[in-house]
Amino acid sequence: MKRILGKLGFALSVVLLISPAILIFLWMLSLSLKNELDNTAFPPVFIPSPPTLDNYAEVFARNDFLLYAWNSVIVSFSATGIALLLGVPAGYGIAKMRATRLAGLILIARITPGLSYLIPLFLLFQWLGLTGTLAPIIITHLVITLPIVVWVMISFFEGLPGELEEAALVDGATIWQAFRHVAMPLARPGITVACILSFIFSWNNFIFAVVLAGRETRTLPVAVNNMLTFEQISWGPLSAAALLVTAPVLLLTLLAQKQIVAGLTAGGVKGA
């Protein structure tokens, strides 16, 4: 009897733990599937009856939503791609040189508030005439993605056995070949982790785009925030848009939860 009670209490605490997360997302979904009348009803209507897709249709009917989605895709993919291109070799180099101080320097990027990069870079981009293009947003996103990639890759390359590369070197391979054909294929799981994390934190980023983006270059988080400012009470479309923005990230988390947990516990990394 006591055992059963204990088990029940444990199950209850698990439910209690995960319910805040579930309930917020369910409420988001519920708001997005109801008409405006039900959304502003008090007491609230919880289950949409009948559920309607009108809110989603309205979001897609604004042709700029697709433009902003495309901007977000370009920014996140470029920022992640460039970070991988630069960060994977850098992680390898740092791991091989055992340059812990260099790694510490990268951690400083982690603790700097995002806004503090923005004033000088904002002025710089103005002088260079880059405002109004996606380039400033991609470049500033490197501030987030590059440290994540380097940090994850250092711990991965440090965990690899060095014998295979040494064998390659003895056989006359250059260190670049040893990296490219031996170490990198072995570190593919690490590259996946780095790629997923840097994509998610770039996709979620708000602060850089809110300052740097013009009308045509907004990313999705900025565009969705603007919907709130100008249409105070139209909760249906707003929730639909919010859900569409965060859905790719939530799906990615569900699919790749093992890699994400491994990457996050390794470095405690997170976007600026």
Binding site: I24, N225, A242
Partner: peptide, 28 residues
């Protein structure tokens, strides 16, 4: 359960903040 538990930290902060804003509405 663990995956669900970590969803909040992966979700887009702006999107979630908007939902909170609606939930905080004093009347509705």
């Amino acid at each position: 359960a663990r995956t669900i538990f970590i969803l909040p930290m992966m979700a887009t902060p702006v999107a979630v903040a908007l939902v909170w804003t609606m939930m905080f509405h004093p009347q509705l």
